[in-house]
Design a protein around this nucleic acid. Sequence first.
DNA 1: AATGAATGAGAGTTCATTCAT
DNA 2: CATGAATGAACTCTCATTCAT
Lengths: 191, 191, 191, 191
Amino acid sequence: MVTEPGEEKRLKILDATLKLISEKGFHGTAMSKVAKEAGVSAGIIYHYFENKDELILELYKAQKRKMADAIYEGLDPAQPLSAQVRYIVEKCFRYHLTQPGITSFMQQFGTSPYFTCQVETEMRVHTKGITDIMDRAQKEMIIKDLPGPVFGTLIIDVASSLAQKQAVGLIELTDELVDDIVDAVWAAIRY
Amino acid sequence: MVTEPGEEKRLKILDATLKLISEKGFHGTAMSKVAKEAGVSAGIIYHYFENKDELILELYKAQKRKMADAIYEGLDPAQPLSAQVRYIVEKCFRYHLTQPGITSFMQQFGTSPYFTCQVETEMRVHTKGITDIMDRAQKEMIIKDLPGPVFGTLIIDVASSLAQKQAVGLIELTDELVDDIVDAVWAAIRY
Amino acid sequence: MVTEPGEEKRLKILDATLKLISEKGFHGTAMSKVAKEAGVSAGIIYHYFENKDELILELYKAQKRKMADAIYEGLDPAQPLSAQVRYIVEKCFRYHLTQPGITSFMQQFGTSPYFTCQVETEMRVHTKGITDIMDRAQKEMIIKDLPGPVFGTLIIDVASSLAQKQAVGLIELTDELVDDIVDAVWAAIRY
Amino acid sequence: MVTEPGEEKRLKILDATLKLISEKGFHGTAMSKVAKEAGVSAGIIYHYFENKDELILELYKAQKRKMADAIYEGLDPAQPLSAQVRYIVEKCFRYHLTQPGITSFMQQFGTSPYFTCQVETEMRVHTKGITDIMDRAQKEMIIKDLPGPVFGTLIIDVASSLAQKQAVGLIELTDELVDDIVDAVWAAIRY
DNA sequence: AATGAATGAGAGTTCATTCAT
DNA sequence: CATGAATGAACTCTCATTCAT
């Protein structure tokens, strides 16, 4: 058994929440709808999560972790740092563009009153793999001397903003365009 | 009289909505609270706005217009285009950083299901002053050949993302840092 | 107009609450049932009372006041103190015996976690007319030197206990029996 | 073994119920909390008790029995009847004053819709030891000619009322005060 | 005998919206 | 124009009870 039976249900609830919030927003996502979407009873959600806020917070943390892992995955430490940073930027863009649901949720969370300094600080443990590379690139004067969150904005927030604009039909992000944007972001952050 | 008495009340309602949503989010902003904050009765809101969604939409449009006007204001057509574009970028940053309430609302709107291609297209009339400059700068190969919304992301969304991170205490944006970031953004968009 | 229209609805809600709690208990009295019994919508209750606890508390205070007034009413200050005390005891018994609903509610409240020292202390203002007589009777050595709450128990709690036993059919309180019990209580408290 | 293993668990459930209801009331006492307090699973309660109402009823009966036994215990049949009655009154007061949890539960039960003529009639078997003495005292004209439940009220309900007032801090029942109250009650019931 | 995850009805409460005044 | 009491559907959350294990 890889996942216990309880864990599986927990995941179904998180998935349903992600789907609904990305489609209907926080306000449009009732717990009863989450239950229905997840195929569970309304009451059981409270067995796994203290309340709606906690459920949303847990979802955010899980997705942030997952994103960090996905971006870090495939990184070749043997490569020069500049290549590693570019890899991160590109991976970040691909990640968001291919998963509009996750992007939508993360953006809503990040712009809502849920988003606090504390939560973000807690997440640093999981993004350490990436921030370490950025820090080293900074010391080696490969990228600019800017605070970490600024890189976060230039990379993650730009990627997710664009992903959402694509989702609503404001732009079409072809592979070439993505390449150009990655180049632009690279130009922004390189020393 | 510059504003009619009715118009004044309308504005008070919009201001109250902006304040509450920026602080408490869509969910935490009840119409009754908007009324109380605006110092009007609950019923009268429906005289000025069809319903809550329409109120929020109107607020978004009004703020978008205001922002476009504020950024366009002071632009010197006599200056070289590159200077004008830099001016826009800088103005945009200052605008968001000094008005966290507006930024918070705009971001919440922009990441919510309210945000649609249609609304955004409607707004183009008001941002024309700015987009025209960007278009001309593009033709003169001062800035990259990227779709308009990409510039929108690199400038507006980056500015508002950073403004919000500052609001929750994740970064402190000193004047020098803002200059550096404007430089970085300029590096991203320049040809 | 003796009562404003809003006050009238408030009273209907309080009456409905009294009736239902006396019949079904706190647990068996849902807000929706109160609304139905009062002939109002579920939501409006929260316009008059902050929440269920507050509604119940208000009901208690109102009934306590009403009871104190009813018992005090008709008291002849010209009569000797001993007659006045006996009058109080008797009135108290009659009051509870003729209004089993009120008695049931008051008893449930008084034995529940709602009942606190603070609430009871607040009520002293309204029972002052009665407690003053008791105090004077005590000074004149007409009744025993016992703390006020002990008299409260011997008179009010005994009366309500008996009223409830009658309500469930455990005793039948004829007029003569009530007279005998009043005599017994008088024997308990007299000097 | 005095108690079988099953009986022991049954008692733990009853004890937990008593504790929680005395502290939080019927409403604030969920079966899951009873289970946790008793250190058993939620499901097993239904092996010992048909449902929550039955559990509460059983608890009441058990406590009523226990109280009757405790009060009867130590009674010396060789003593004159008047002394025996006084002994009962005093024991009753001490019992309630020293066990506020039991008193609180019994009072809540006695004032709730659980309390019926039938339940009370059933309990007569267990209080027979006491009621017999009262009956004999009545025949010998030591105490007044009042129905049994009236004595119940004057003794038990007065005792529990006072115990609760002490529990919430409305009075402090010193030994001397208790003696005085017992005297008062005796004055009420004696012929 | 024992567990505790699961159910689902129903609780308290909120809130967008209406409408008599 | 303006009020705010009133509505009632919908929300979050709880809990007595069941049942597969």
